[in-house]
Computed example of a mutant assay.
Amino acid sequence: MRTRVVFNQKGGVGKSSIAVNLAAISAAQGFNTLLIDLDPQANASQYVLGDDATYNADKPALEPNIQNFFDEVLGNTQQKGLIGNALGSLLKSRTQDFNAYIHQTPFAKLDVLPASPSLGSLTHALEAKHKIYKLRDAIQSLSGKYQRIYIDTPPAFNFFTLSALIAADRVLIPFDCDVFSKRALHSLIENIMETRADHNERLEIEGIVVNQFQAQAKLPREVVETLKNEGLPVLNSMLPPSVMMKESHHKNMPLIYLVKEHKLTQAYQTLFNEIEPQ
């Protein structure tokens, strides 16, 4: 089993799109694949589940979800409403089974553990009770079921991101050729390497994924060249901008299922082949 985290402390760099589309290609290639969504915005969950994972003032988040897992880790027993009570009864009997929180997607061999908008409310309690290794232990229990796991993270270095890095083998860092992104990159890498030294010696930075790369524009080329000259692990496969990504989000269909021959889909396939060489 191989577990990848897609992480950048800066928002808007394409974390969810990259996590979902690589997970979808993984599944299409025949790997039993799980997508774990740790971002309270739940973009990855909504990308593959559509309305089922969409929440608003009148519609609660899809359950069970990752917050329910961490509630069980904390031993929280309070539930809200009749649905919550029924869910509590179910989960109490399956507390040790991480599979209880996982949902099937419409796509073969691709499952998802959805996020919750109120996940952040548990941060202080989880930190206070030193629960930083619980996600790692739960993921390890899935080794007989999944061959690949992709984790989408919030745009912050917090408890949930740290939990993901402790659970993972590899990290992919999305990068959008922005000057501010470049300035923050060294701090991000330092956080990853500190996590490796303190908690997870097998963790590797698999590479920097350049997203929204405009090959004909001078500034993006110069920024990428600077990163390479600094010795940073920039992957050769770069993702071009395309309105097709928004179409993919709108239809809740990863690119490999929506437009297999499109240039952006092929760029993702090339990226997947680079990190998963045959």
Results as ranks from 00 to 15, higher is better:
104 Q>C: 03
59 K>Q: 14
122 L>M: 07
89 S>A: 11
97 D>V: 02
109 K>G: 01
56 N>Q: 06
66 I>Y: 07
94 R>Y: 02
134 K>C: 04
60 P>L: 08
82 L>W: 07
121 S>M: 11
80 K>W: 10
55 Y>G: 01
83 I>V: 13
82 L>F: 13
135 L>R: 06
151 I>Y: 04
116 S>E: 05
121 S>D: 13
135 L>C: 06
144 G>P: 00
131 K>N: 09
135 L>G: 05
93 S>P: 00
93 S>N: 13
92 K>D: 12
74 L>V: 10
118 S>G: 00
58 D>Y: 10
67 Q>L: 11
107 F>R: 04
130 H>Q: 13
68 N>I: 04
61 A>M: 08
97 D>K: 11
70 F>Q: 09
157 F>I: 09
88 G>N: 12
110 L>C: 05
71 D>G: 01
140 Q>M: 06
153 T>Q: 07
85 N>C: 00
122 L>W: 03
137 D>G: 00
67 Q>C: 03
98 F>L: 13
100 A>G: 06
74 L>Y: 06
67 Q>P: 01
88 G>W: 06
67 Q>R: 15
143 S>K: 14
106 P>V: 08
100 A>C: 04
66 I>D: 08
100 A>T: 12
126 L>S: 04
118 S>H: 09
151 I>R: 02
63 E>T: 13
59 K>G: 03
145 K>I: 12
105 T>A: 08
102 I>L: 05
126 L>H: 04
71 D>R: 15
86 A>W: 01
138 A>L: 05
71 D>I: 01
142 L>H: 03
152 D>F: 06
149 I>N: 02
146 Y>T: 03
142 L>F: 03
122 L>F: 04
92 K>G: 15
114 P>H: 08
90 L>W: 03
120 G>S: 14
108 A>D: 12
136 R>A: 13
109 K>H: 12
152 D>R: 07
123 T>K: 10
119 L>D: 04
92 K>V: 01
155 P>Y: 03
94 R>E: 10
150 Y>L: 13
58 D>N: 14
114 P>G: 10
55 Y>R: 11
82 L>C: 00
92 K>T: 10
135 L>S: 04
92 K>N: 14
84 G>A: 11
114 P>L: 11
129 K>S: 15
99 N>P: 00
79 Q>I: 07
139 I>C: 04
68 N>D: 15
101 Y>Q: 05
95 T>G: 11
61 A>K: 09
153 T>L: 05
66 I>R: 08
128 A>S: 13
66 I>V: 15
65 N>P: 12
95 T>F: 01
146 Y>P: 08
141 S>D: 09
86 A>V: 12
113 L>K: 03
111 D>N: 14
67 Q>K: 15
138 A>P: 10
90 L>D: 09
85 N>K: 14
135 L>M: 07
75 G>Y: 09
116 S>N: 15
69 F>Y: 15
151 I>D: 03
124 H>C: 00
54 T>N: 07
